[in-house]
Design a protein around this nucleic acid. Sequence first.
DNA 1: GTACTGGAAAGATCAGACCATTCAGATATA
DNA 2: TATATCTGAATGGTCTGATCTTTCCAGTAC
Lengths: 256, 256
Amino acid sequence: MTTSAPPLSPAEPVHVPKTAEVVAQAIRNQIVRGEILEGAALPSEAELMVHFGVSRPSLREAFRILESEKLITVRRGSRGGARATRPDVSVAARYLGLLMQFDEVMLSDVFEARSMFEPLALRLLARRENRVEAAQSLMLIIDELVPGIDARTRMDVWSRFYVELFNLAGNKTLQLLYGTLTEVVRHELLDALVQQDADSRNPNWKKTIIKAMNLVADGRGDEAADYWMRQMLLLEAKVQQAHQRRTLIDATVAFA
Amino acid sequence: MTTSAPPLSPAEPVHVPKTAEVVAQAIRNQIVRGEILEGAALPSEAELMVHFGVSRPSLREAFRILESEKLITVRRGSRGGARATRPDVSVAARYLGLLMQFDEVMLSDVFEARSMFEPLALRLLARRENRVEAAQSLMLIIDELVPGIDARTRMDVWSRFYVELFNLAGNKTLQLLYGTLTEVVRHELLDALVQQDADSRNPNWKKTIIKAMNLVADGRGDEAADYWMRQMLLLEAKVQQAHQRRTLIDATVAFA
DNA sequence: GTACTGGAAAGATCAGACCATTCAGATATA
DNA sequence: TATATCTGAATGGTCTGATCTTTCCAGTAC
C-alpha cells in the first residue's frame, strides 16, 4: 500500500552549498578560530587541492570569496600563495553601504545616526573609573587642531579623536559600528570638512569639546551627552543643506 | 646621465585587481544601480563570457563573490542561471560577527550596545508628528504577548516590535544597524528568552512598555529613553551573568 | 486529460595547458 | 670582496575544452 505523503509547507528551497562555499567555510573557520594566525601562509594551491579533494577552479573560487572578505590575500610568484589577513571594518562598511543604497538611505540619515553615537560614548566614558585621564588624553588630541592646518589633516585628527573616544568608552561593538558608519561616509566627511574651511576657522569647536570633556571627567555623562548632541544638531543643520535629499548612491563612486 | 630616484615612502603594495573582481564589480554596480532589477535573470554564462571577454572560470569566480554577498542566486538546469537578489542584513551581520570574533568581543558587550540603541529610537520617535498613532500601534504588538505563549513566538513578537519601533522612528541607518546587531546575537537572544521563561511570566514588562510609550506619545522622548534604559539595565544585569566573559566565538556555530 | 519520458539547456566540476610574476641563488663584473 | 645581473624554479592567473548533474519543457502513451 502507499501511505499518502504528509501535507508539506509551501516549499522551502534548500540551498545546496557549492564546493567553493564549503572550502571557503572550512578555511574561514580555521582563520577565525586562530588555527591559522594572522599573516601566516596557507598551504599552496596544490596542497590544498589534495587536502580538500577539489579541483583547482573550485579552490580558486573559494579563494575569491575569502579574498573579497579580506580574510586572505594572495600573492603570486615564488614564495607566494595565500596569507591570512586581519579583516577590517571596510568590508562591513561596503556591505552596509550596499544595503543602504538598496534602501535609498539618505546621507543625512547616516550622519544623523552617526551623531547619535557620539553621546553614547560620552555616557559610557563618564561611567568609567579612568574618566579623568581619558578626558585629558582626548583633549590632547584636540589640541592638535591648530588654526591653519588643512582639511585632510583635520580629518585625521578628528578620526583619531573618535577612535580614541570609543576606545576609552570601552564598548567594542559601538566602536565597530561607529567605525563602519564613518567608513561608509568617509568621502562625504572630507567634503564636509573642506566646506567647513570656507565657512570659518571655528575656534569655538575646541570650547565645545573642552566643556563636554570636563563634564565627562566629572562623571556627568548625561549632561555631556545632551550638550554634545545639541551642539551637533547645530552642525547638522548646516551639513544637512549640503546633503539634502542626496542618497548614498549619488555619493558613492561605487567601488569604481 | 642617470637622475637619482626620488626618495620613496615605505612602499605601498598596490592591489592589482583580478579579472573576477573586475567582473563582479561591474555586475554589482549594475544591480545596485537598479539596471538589473531584483529577481531579474542575468544573461547566461556563455553570453556574459563574450560580453566581458573573460573565460568561464573567471566568470564563475565572479559569481561566487556575488553569491557570497547575496547579490545573486544561481540555479542550475534549464531556465537556470543567475538572478539578482535583494541583499539583507544577514551578510553585514556575518562580517560584523567575524570582526567581533577577531576582537574577542564579549556577548555582554553586544547586548549592551544593542540596549543603547533602543532609547535612541524612542527619542527619535517622540520627535515625530505621528508619535501618538505610532505609540498606539506599537502597543498593539505588545498586546500579543499574552501569558503562556512559547519563547519562539515571543521572540517573533519582540522582533516585530523592534522592527516597527525603528521603522516608525524614521532613521533607516539606525534600523539597519540594530537589525544587524540583532542578527549577530540571534541565537543568544532566543536562549535568553527561553531562560526568561523559567524565571517568571514577567507581566510587569507590559507596564514598562506602556509607560515608555505614553511618554513617547507625550513627546517626552528623553524621559522615555531614560526610563527605558534604566529598565534595560536591570534586565542586562541578569543576562550578563549568563553571558559573563563569553565571547562571540564561543557562541557561534561559526557558519558550520 | 493525466502521467511518463526523452532531450535540451544551463550550471558544477574537473583536467590540463600556458602565461606572468616573484624570489633566491648562481654568476659575472668591478 | 662586494655588488650588480642573470637565470630558473615556484606559484598563482587565466584560458580551453570536456564531462557530469540538474532542471524544465514538450512530446507521447494511456
